[in-house]
Design a protein around this nucleic acid. Structure first.
Lengths: 207, 207
DNA sequence: TTTTTTACTAGAACAAAGTTCTATATTAAG
DNA sequence: CTTAATATAGAACTTTGTTCTAGTAAAAAA
């Protein structure tokens, strides 16, 4: 490959930057392929072609096809979590907090459709390492959310429920709606029903 | 293979029965493998070995590995839908109907853990044909459910909402809970929280 | 600057797994 | 009994993910 390749925008601006750019171009190419054709039906060669890089380069950076799928997933989850946390923290009370969770999930998903679709994939064959990393990321996120909501439960503004029921009660409906919407199963836009789902969520957990 | 093989229980009792038995033994073997290792990491040879059949036989009956995955999925969905419909129809009013949906989903999933796990798979690369068959099955089921609930909406006992929001509102939370429970993400048993989810569902759609 | 080391790129060679193909056996029908 | 259709078997083939060896470019050391 010639050095003047398009995937190296910041020519010789340090190797790290170039590496990061390359990795991102691969992740971008992979995301497009995965969403279009599914992970299994995407070949390494297709990713390679779209990202303008060689097999060697691909394996050097990611180790395997699953490595790409994993990194993409973890990055996506973190991005989504960050977006949700930001919104939650700007809420002033429990009800606003619940609305923030539902609303932010909805907004992020409509604003990042490809990544959102990808995050709905199950069956990504995570390595043990990636699996535990994912758990860790999830725990960290959940912990933050619960710390934010805990005071309202203590003050009796929210119901005290088994911990593992809050996420399904609050996020379950919007998640299911968005999943169906993303896969083109039905018409109607999330924007129109956002409030409805937020209210349902709130009434499920309010005291 | 010898004719006295264990996978042909009803020796020479008509070919159809034998064929059905063989196909079922394959589906059973495949389900176990898929749930244990995931679809992609299950090889044809593993299925073949567990089902005690040859490659030729496998491809004769199912056409491909995906063919097996598809048939298993469709069969599972139909079985689940039938179980839910049965429960719904035995309900006497809208509230009981909603409780039936949530309760039956919960019961069926705990009573058919492997199949339930499998049905939570996304990314089964359905062929166009299987995809439309799945749509058809789903439409048929949804239609039945809506026919059952429609009178209650008309009578004003249930809210009139955008059609595509009912399923997420009623089934979203329990589905998400069960999904997490099946993948061993949390303790607590579905039985303990069934009522909670049913009540939340009802309060989301009651007038 | 020159040398040396490290990170990265490249693609041919390899191996694993899904699928096809040909041959054979079994059952049902004429 | 012969014939046709269905089912089973496994070897051969093909696709595709991965490894391996070689080479290049950038940073570090001399």
């Amino acid at each position: 490959m010639t050095p003047a390749d398009s995937s190296k925008p910041q020519e010789s601006r340090g190797r790290e930057a170039a590496t990061r750019a390359r990795k991102e171009s691969v992740l971008k190419a992979a995301l497009e392929c995965f969403v279009e054709k599914g992970i299994e039906h995407t070949t390494i060669h297709q990713i390679q072609a779209r990202a303008n890089c060689s097999i060697g380069s691909l394996y050097h950076h990611f180790g395997s096809k699953e490595g790409i799928a994993e990194e993409l997933f973890l990055e996506g989850v973190q991005q989504q979590n960050a977006a949700l946390l930001r919104e939650i923290r700007s809420a002033g009370n429990a009800e606003e907090g619940v609305h923030a969770v539902v609303g932010a999930y909805c907004d992020w998903s409509t604003g990042n459709r490809q990544l959102a679709s990808y995050l709905h994939s199950r069956d990504i064959d995570f390595s043990g390492q990636a699996r535990s990393r994912l758990r860790e990321i999830h725990q960290l996120y959940i912990r933050e959310v619960f710390i934010w909501f805990a005071p309202f439960v203590e003050r009796g503004e929210m119901r005290a429920l088994p911990l593992e029921t809050y996420v399904p009660l609050i996020s379950g409906p919007i998640q299911e709606y968005i999943r169906r919407w993303l896969s083109g199963h039905h018409p109607g836009s999330p924007e129109e029903v956002k409030a409805l789902f937020a209210e349902a969520a709130w009434s499920a957990v309010k005291a």
